[in-house]
């Protein structure tokens, strides 16, 4: 709430909420800035880190675009998973680094949301070796999936594909967006420092490049502990 300096000021303050100004922003202002200083797409998944708790309970938000988005195509994707429940549960048990995993059908995507420990590439390799058959069934229903079939013969391509479709995880602290964008553009982070007032523009342009993102790395109720440590301390083994 500001002091009252007249109707013009009030009207200007309300511009971001007004339909005509939103239209102008969407179809003119944002495209102009995308043309002028668009940001490259930032890669998906958690960023590499040598620190222990950065390597436990990592989040994967894999969005796989459906080849056929009709109810029949969606049903095929559902069936690909439903017919392989035993494989999925046995695989997750044996991978041993997974805290939780689930599949969602959202709009035109089949999504795998999981929490795992350790390195991303090895996590995917484990998956291919334990439930590759499930992904093979699923890949037939997903855009760009045919060329990855069978996954066990296309391991590195499969890993790259998953990384490409894993959501970019926005930094936990807003200021860090500047540094990530600098690195992606091949510049030294924050050298020179960015004008703080350009942070909203940086965010908007990033959301143009990465339409879907994970808002930070997520909340953890018991951060820093691996699935193996939790199982051991709860006495439920393996």
């Amino acid at each position: 709430m500001s002091d009252d300096s007249g109707w013009l000021n009030s009207y200007i303050n309300s511009l971001p909420e007004r339909g005509w100004f939103q239209f102008l922003s969407k179809y003119v202002v944002v495209p102009f800035w995308v043309w002028r200083e668009g940001r490259p797409k930032l890669p998906g998944g958690p960023r590499p880190s040598p620190q222990p708790s950065d390597n436990t309970q990592r989040m994967m938000n894999l969005l796989m675009p459906l080849k056929d988005t009709s109810p029949i195509g969606r049903a095929k994707a559902v069936m690909a998973l439903a017919q392989n429940v035993d494989e999925i549960f046995a695989g997750l048990d044996n991978v041993g680094t997974v805290h939780s995993a689930r599949f969602l059908l959202v709009e035109d995507y089949i999504c795998m949301i999981s929490v795992y420990d350790g390195d991303f590439s090895n996590y995917i390799r484990d998956f291919i070796s334990t439930i590759g058959s499930v992904f093979d069934a699923l890949m037939h229903e997903v855009e760009g999936g045919d060329k990855l079939y069978p996954s066990e013969e296309n391991v590195e391509a499969f890993i790259d594909w998953v990384r490409e479709h894993d959501l970019f995880q926005a930094p936990d602290y807003p200021f860090d967006l500047f540094g990530l964008q600098d690195e992606q553009a091949g510049r030294k982070p924050n050298d020179p420092p960015h004008d703080l007032q350009t942070l909203p523009r940086s965010l908007i342009l990033q959301l143009h490049a990465n339409r879907n993102i994970s808002l930070g790395g997520g909340y953890r109720g018991y951060p820093g502990y691996s699935a193996a440590q939790i199982r051991r301390n709860l006495g439920v083994g393996w």
Partner: peptide, 26 residues
């Protein structure tokens, strides 16, 4: 420094947020 209407519009067009208006009495 109260931003003028034009300065605020300029900020919006630059996809930036203008500084908030001062509080009453500030």
């Amino acid at each position: 420094q109260r931003a003028t209407p034009w300065q605020k519009i300029k900020s919006y067009l630059q996809l930036q947020l203008p500084l908030p208006d001062p509080y009453p009495g500030q």
